[in-house]
Nucleic acid binder design. Structure first.
Lengths: 205, 205
DNA sequence: TTGGATACAATCGTACATGTATGTATAACG
DNA sequence: CGTTATACATACATGTACGATTGTATCCAA
């Protein structure tokens, strides 16, 4: 095989990542062999080992590829909705997560891999710790939004911003989990919107 | 090796299940070899293959061993608290789940295996479907309790029993998930009790 | 008491998955 | 325009998990 252009090499790298996501999703991380990923990508194991150290390295690459934009979008929504109605901002942010998961199959696949197709043990425990960190960050962001809502009298009196933020994180975690657990891809139905709306409405003054 | 008594055989079977739970928990399901389980149990692979068809069969046995009592206890609590204050019954039921997880290490290990140390693909997908079924059953039970609360004017007006039940399921799912995600075993702190209390208080009239 | 049936232990062959080492043609660079 | 690093493909050696088979000592039942 001849040497490729830098651009071509970068493309094969992305092909490998896409193939890895697909095979991880269908076979699970542990049963996925680099040989199968290579076949799916139309290359040989040599190419995979050239671009990535081992399977773990590839797994991290798949993760970095899809989750970062989703988390960033949540933060934006939360921040720019801070001035008018923080609670509405939170509701929009929650809803947006599911609309993204509905519209972006690769993002949904990545999430399903992380939740249902990976065993968090040994060298994969750092991923779990990072997820923990993301949840803590989200809790802090939500706490700030709830506090701003409280300052404007929008939050139901007697509620602790920190506590309601924690509960929202748990609600979101469980909802995403159950959203992805179904056999066929879930959809953002009116009932689902009502569920999120109710979660916020319960906290509104 | 000589033949054992029926009682002795049953004991080795339990030893194998306990060993499997331990090794599953530390290595993850896929990296667990029947040889390691056998060593942990103090027997050979021959004994494991005698009592169980394969690793999947053993996995199911581990699951059946610990989750059934926990689910049953939840149902009992929900039912016998139905007469006086259904909302208090739900709160007790939720709290009980975490106290059980705190006090029963084997139950916590089993839950951690199911959530973080297993890849739900191919022959393991039935387990995921069964978890879905359990969540749906719980949602129905909760819906009944919320409806009884509504009939007695204890539920906040304007709330749909089905919707609040769904949200409680998601809250519980996420809370259990995050409860188990931490590096060291979590504890039922006053803050945790306050969180559950808040979840119910938000729904009380 | 005696012939299975039981409850394992020990052994074997097979099948892969991994990592590495090597080959090689070409793009990039000075 | 020659050299060198690149971007892979190919081949090889190693380890290891699995399933099946076989052996065997004992319990249980008739």
């Amino acid at each position: 095989m001849a040497r490729k252009t830098k651009a071509e090499a970068e493309q094969t790298r992305r092909q490998i990542i896409d193939a890895a996501r697909k095979v991880f999703h269908t076979l699970g991380v542990s049963r996925t062999t680099l040989e199968k990923i290579a076949q799916e990508a139309g290359v040989t194991r040599g190419a995979v080992y050239w671009h990535f150290k081992d399977k773990q390295d590839l797994f991290f690459a798949v993760r970095e590829h899809a989750t970062l934009p989703l988390v960033d979008q949540v933060d934006e929504r939360l921040l720019d909705a801070g001035q008018a109605d923080p609670l509405a901002g939170i509701e929009q942010a929650l809803l947006r997560i599911f609309t993204v998961l509905e519209g972006d199959p690769s993002a949904r696949e990545t999430f399903e891999i992380m939740i249902f197709r990976c065993e968090y043990v040994a060298e994969f425990t750092p991923v779990l710790e990072r997820i923990n960190g993301s949840c803590d960050d989200l809790a802090i962001k939500l706490q700030g939004a709830y506090r701003r809502a409280a300052e404007r009298g929008l939050l139901r009196p007697g509620l602790d911003p920190a506590l309601v933020a924690q509960e929202t994180v748990y609600f979101l975690t469980g909802a995403v989990d159950r959203w992805l657990a179904g056999p066929e891809p879930a959809r953002v139905t009116p009932a689902w919107r009502a569920l999120i709306a109710q979660h916020i409405a319960l906290r509104r003054a």
